[in-house]
Structure formats: C-alpha cells, structure tokens
Design a protein around this nucleic acid. Sequence first.
DNA 1: CTGTTAGCGCTTTCAC
DNA 2: GTGAAAGCGCTAACAG
Lengths: 340, 340
Amino acid sequence: MSRVITIYDIAKAVGASPATVSKALNGRRDVSDAMRDKIIKKAAEMGYRPNVNARGLKMKKSWLVGIVYGSDMHDTLEHPLFLPIMDAFKRQMEMHGYELLFLSQSSKFIGDSLFSHAFSRQVEGLLLINVSPETANLFKHSATHIPMVSCDGIISSMTSVLTDNESAGIEAVDYLYKMGHRSIGHIAGPVGMIATAGEERKRGFKLGLERCGLVYDESQVVTAKGWTFKAGRDAFMQLLNQNPHMTAVFCAADFYLMGVLDVCKERNLTIPQDMSVIGFDDLQWTAYMNPGFTTFRQDKEMLGKLSADRLVENINGEHREEIIRIPATLVIRDSVTHIV
Amino acid sequence: MSRVITIYDIAKAVGASPATVSKALNGRRDVSDAMRDKIIKKAAEMGYRPNVNARGLKMKKSWLVGIVYGSDMHDTLEHPLFLPIMDAFKRQMEMHGYELLFLSQSSKFIGDSLFSHAFSRQVEGLLLINVSPETANLFKHSATHIPMVSCDGIISSMTSVLTDNESAGIEAVDYLYKMGHRSIGHIAGPVGMIATAGEERKRGFKLGLERCGLVYDESQVVTAKGWTFKAGRDAFMQLLNQNPHMTAVFCAADFYLMGVLDVCKERNLTIPQDMSVIGFDDLQWTAYMNPGFTTFRQDKEMLGKLSADRLVENINGEHREEIIRIPATLVIRDSVTHIV
DNA sequence: CTGTTAGCGCTTTCAC
DNA sequence: GTGAAAGCGCTAACAG
C-alpha cells in the first residue's frame, strides 16, 4: 500500500477543510455548488479512493458480508451450483452496496474461529451455501448473533432459500404419466445429508403418483447411498430387480444418470425406448449425451438473488425465519419416450 | 454491528491501560506474564474480537487480497477448475495470513471501477483467474500498480501460473505411440481466447509426433471453433474425413469428447476398439462414461497454492514476472486401446 | 514492565 | 457555507 491520497490532500489542493471535502464527496447539501464541483474534480484528478475501512470505523458500517460455502466433502467444490449462485448473490449484494468476503469452511476454520474472522472483519451478515449440518449447528449455537441466510439447505432458525424440490418431484411424475408411463421408479437421494433435497424430491414423487391416481408401492423407490454415480448404479440395479416392468425412472440427481446408463447397456435396454429417465440439476453434459437427458434445472440466479435480498432485510433488522422456495424447470430433451 | 468489546473494555476490566492490553494480545514481550495471562483470559471471557479494520488503518496493512474471476462468458461460471483453484488459493493465502475479497468482473465493474473497489478496501494484491484479455489489458494499463498474479492464463507483465499444456500434449502423443498408434489426430482448442491453452496443447502435439519420429501433416489437426461440444463434433467430423485411417485422437478438452462420441456412434465406430481418444480436464463425468475416458488432470490444488505464494512474494516486494508451469497428469482409463 | 500520547482516514456535531 | 475538534479501535513511540 503505497502513498495514498486522502481527503486531507484534496483539502489542501483546493484550499478547503477536510470536513468540507468529506461533505462534498458524500453529496451533502451544505456545500456550495462551486466548491463541490471543484472538490469532485480535484478528487478524480488526483485519483482519490476513499478508505472504506476508515469510514467503516467511524460509521460502524462495513458494507461487507461473508460467504461460507461447502460441506466437508471435497467434491462439492466441483458442484456446478455453487459458483453461479455465488455470482448471482454477489451481483445482487452489489446492488445493495455490499461486498463479499470469502469464508470457506476449511477444516481449521470451522465454527467459532470462522466467526472470529467474520467479526474481526466487521461483516454485517453471512450467507451459508450448502454448509454441513454440524457447521450449521455451530453457527446457531454461537453466542454472537449475526444475520444469516442459508441457501440450498434448510437451517432452522434462519431464512432458507432453496429449490422447490417437492413440486419438481410432482412434475416429474406428472410428465411421465402424461407420456403414458404407469410403472415409474425413483432413485432417491440419501437422507441426513446436506439439505433435505433427497427427501423432498421423494415426497414429491409420491405425491405425484397419488395425484395421477397411481398407487405407490415401497418397491418403487430405492434410496441411493450417496450423490454419486456408483450409488445411482446400485440403486437402479435394485430398482430394476424390484420392478421388472418399470418403463421410467426419476433420478434425484444427474449423477445417477451415468449409473442408469451403465446398467441399461448391460441389460440391453435402450434409452428412451426401453427405459425413460429424468434427472435433476441439468449438469452441462446431460445435454450432450445421446440421447440428451430430460432433467430439472434449478434457478441458480434466483437462488442467489433472493438470498441476497433476504440477507439485506435481515441486516436491516427485519428478522424473519422462513423458507423460500424457488421453482425448478423441467428441461425436456430426449430421454423420455411416449408410450402407448 | 451491535455493542462490541474493545481493548478499552478489557483494559478497564483488568485494570490496565489499552496499550498494555494491545501488547498482551499481540504477544509482545514487554508485558508481565501475570498481566498477559489475565488479559488474555479476560479477553476470551468477554468475547473480544479485534477490529481488523482499525488495526489496518493504523498499521497500513489490510491482510486482504482480492480475487477476480471469470471471463465474460457466463459458462465459465460452471467451469470446474474455478472453485477448486480458488479454494486452494484461499487456503494458502490463509497460511500467509490473508483473507479474500470477492471481485468478479460483472459487466458494470470492469476495469477502473473494479480497481476502485479493490483500493477502497485496501486490498494488497489481486489474483486474476482466467480473466478475459480485455480486462487483463485494463488492468495492465491502470495507473495504479497493485501486485497481481494471473492464474490459468498468461498475462504479460505479471507472474502467470498455469498448467504445462505443451508437455501434456507431448505426453498424449507419446502414450498413444506406445500403445501402437501411428495415425493420430488432434482437435485443437480455439486460438485467441482466454489463455493460450489451445495453442500450447497443439504445439505439444506436434512436438510429440516429432519425438516419436512420426511426420506431422496439417491434416492431422483441426482447430475447434470454441470450447464446446458442438465445436468438438464438427472438428472431429472434419478430422475423420481428412484422416480415414486415424486410430486415435487427442482432444484439447473433455467437452469435445461428447462430440467425438456422437460421431463415432453415427459412423459405427466403437471406442476404443476403432477409435482411441484422450481428453483434457478430467471433468467429473469422464470417469463414469462407458468406457471411462483417459484424460489429463490439471493440478488445481497446486495452481491455487503457487498463485498464492507468488502473490505474497509480490506483495512483499519481490516482483518478478515469470511463467510458472504445473504439470498435468494423464489419468489412464479405458478409452485408448493397444493396437498391434 | 506499564501508561500516556498521538495519529491512521474518515465523518459528524457544532460553532462561526 | 465552512471549518475546528473529537472520536471510531487500534498500535507505536516514548516516558516513567
């Protein structure tokens, strides 16, 4: 940090006092127009940059929020939702005048230590993206209260913004039903993990069946043992064995698609002729597979934006604990066939 | 920002002066052990958090660096390298005592305005991840000089940290050669884009051929018109037409794999029996395809870590402009066959 | 060892 | 309209 221009320098240059410069730069009305113009011009000329920290020190307002992401699983770092959500969040926070401090939960910084950092930097709020339940707990039990919003995961006692998984589940079944399918299976996401997405999608699946007047049987759902290819593969295998006549499967995650594909190849089942499939997340490659996969797209833009709006509301004192749901959209490609 | 504990509060509580408290808390030696213990204990008890900004104001050291990411293409937000690199960078910066401010280059904040932000926050350095050439230019021409490191892209006049693409290209050919292939094609990445990865990999391809004693012919390389599936598909089609006897293809990006797959299916070519293929990036799904794809893995951890180390060096005044290369590793799976 | 003082850059009364 | 003065929380001389 080399020699930097301060309001004192400007004051000296235009022959005014620092106070006046401050006022002019902040658009106060009690400065003559002539003086204001002169100051603003000079400031630009000298390349003045306000020292946000000094200002914050005085005003007790940092205009900084922290963002905490990631579970302990390293994989999530490659989760395609994170960056888009963060980016949308950032853009919206910028609209509100805030900037972002990056606070991932690396092992050493879990819990209180993470809070220390946040506090020491005077952050005014925290966005939690997909944090692990343990961390969430630490946060809730922390003595200090700081406005927080959880995105892509429900954390009780704070506003949570996430995809309407249940409705998506219903829509999946509905779509499959309309396409003529009557024997539908579901590979559910694991429970007890980050977020409750797995359970919610499964609930939607059941509700969808009900609405279409189909009877639900335990055998139609197999819960995968993780959000991975392998887990999907195993689950699908079991599902097929339990439902030899199944014509369609709704996967709670695109990751499972690969497993389904694998098993289908093994058993000589063609997609979509012999097996229709719907995924979840619209991962990049799903569009390029052959056939292209029909899958749900989460509205990452909205997820980030609304998280930002809620967080600002919280910061401004309007604390309300609620769960906000963003609809997912079904992206129809070629992995579901119409049967008669 | 509610009522917050300061060193004055602690001073009062233990009956010492703020200066002593400051010294004790900062591990200075000129405080009696008894007093130090008392202060530290009290501080913890009262939940004291140092105000980093106040300290920075005094010390002229913010312990903050900014991170600028993303090209103008929205897609990059889903680029699987970003988050891992950022995360590795963050962890390493943390080791050095720094925290991260998030400065994506949303359209409105390009160029000087981005600098204003960075400056106003007193950031001591900037990490540029894969920024667009235009932005890079704005940075270079900016009047203000602030230590910068470019990751995953070469920007002249600053230290750049990136994968050793050329060597990877050589290795690809070498491996293919050892597996018995003699007619090898290459789908090159587009030129003039972010980074020079495309050109570098192509250069490696040619060098590899040379080393293996194979003659290179123009027809063996087709440059894709982007980093997309579609571009890869078109390129491969052309490549096949130009080289009917080709038995292997080295793709500059995993994205191209899908296109290759597509064309192979069309032409009834089985991978790897009829066509061996190598990709680049080790995207998650490449492992789960059937067959699993052989591809290069970039060392995101190292990319982030070294970027951090170099940036800190720069901040500490050791300015050197260099290009640091990190080797990629060939992840061998089943998309290359041994021919006789 | 400990405390007093001054000042980092900024904003904000409150006189003038 | 303008400026002098005080203070945000912290640290660095420098006395004592």
